[in-house]
Write a protein that binds this DNA or RNA. Sequence first.
DNA 1: ATGACTGCAAAGACTTTGCATCTTT
DNA 2: AAAGATGCAAAGTCTTTGCAGTCAT
Lengths: 133, 133
Amino acid sequence: MQNKLNFSAKREAIYKTIAESKEHPAAEWIYERLKHDIPDLSLGTVYRNIAVFKEMGIIKSVGVYNGLERYDCDVQPHSHFICKKCFSISDVPKGRNFIDKSMYDFVEKECGASVTGHSVDFYGICISCREKK
Amino acid sequence: MQNKLNFSAKREAIYKTIAESKEHPAAEWIYERLKHDIPDLSLGTVYRNIAVFKEMGIIKSVGVYNGLERYDCDVQPHSHFICKKCFSISDVPKGRNFIDKSMYDFVEKECGASVTGHSVDFYGICISCREKK
DNA sequence: ATGACTGCAAAGACTTTGCATCTTT
DNA sequence: AAAGATGCAAAGTCTTTGCAGTCAT
């Protein structure tokens, strides 16, 4: 059993790539982005580190779109807008609370479940796809 | 190009299985459920019909959980509760509007996108998994 | 007959994993 | 040195697809 994680250069680079990207990247995207600077990076390492980050709770899955799992380093509750055409994902600016605690209570009572989180996603056509039309 | 869809016995059975199930089934689940009654059913046919139903707009994807795409024949907006442990999906009873039109306006203005839909999901541990503990 | 649907199996696409090797502590 | 991280390639899973045969109109 291990408890002490090393923070290798590659691990750091992978996390940094996710953190600095606003695109809610998929694994392959991260890999493509990094392999120029780190030619001996392997895709398996990207996947393994993503699993580590999830486990640590420093990234979250945004969901699977077009067959690709997308990640977000902002683990605070916030909404996303997903383009049905190009599958770009963008954050909806905060400043509007869609879901409050009373809704958790409602779901807990109605479903008998314990609710620990939620997600609100909006779908449509993004500004870039609209302009292309 | 074709426009006239046949409504074959298998197609009908597949749709009926989705419609009568409350489990937001995945393709494999539908297949397993039906192959007793329809021994010569093939999984490819299930997938192909799911694609047809989606295209027709009579079912919707609920999302991909644990690697499996889940489907819903209730295409009206409603929320889901997803168990993080067993990945069961249940409807949150209506009677509470989480998202209204002003929120679409908010997202459209903030993102410059055209918003055509949304989803609200709650996560946690379902009643059945809680009782097992 | 013609167009639509299906079984079957192969191919695709994304992700996970085993093992030997290399790094970090 | 010991524990952890990685490359590589193979394996795993879910889904799609080509093709020939079957069914519906």
